[in-house]
Design a protein around this nucleic acid. Sequence first.
DNA 1: TGGTTGACGTTAA
DNA 2: GTTAACGCCAACC
Length: 122
Amino acid sequence: VKRKKPARKSKIAASPQEVRLLIERAIRAIPQGKVSTYGAVARAAGLAGAARQVAVVLRRGFDLPWQRVLGAGGQIKLTGDSAIEQRLRLDAEGVRVRGRRVDMKAHEYKFRLPKRKSSRQK
DNA sequence: TGGTTGACGTTAA
DNA sequence: GTTAACGCCAACC
């Protein structure tokens, strides 16, 4: 199977620390009992396409509610112990987890874009 | 300096 | 449901 080109949107145009800051801010904005995705967090931080960077920030972790960030479609992307812990943490917050997926319909947090035009998101 | 990796995403088969 | 390919970006080695 071969893909051609989904059409890229934007490139990261900020210093590493700014990126980290923006991402952390977006992550901390997710309230307890709610969850979001890497892609959504990246977009909320104004870094569309930098989903991977979100993962990097989470991994390096500081004091972020990492358990609230999931893969596209509400899927838990972790493996092993971490996955178990994430599931437990989410469950403790009241987030229903089915298998390795979360009921996004009921728990996805809709960001209010920081600076961009406040239109609806995702 | 340069190639590899990864807590990613999307489209396609 | 799964597997494959491609795009993307910074951390790692």
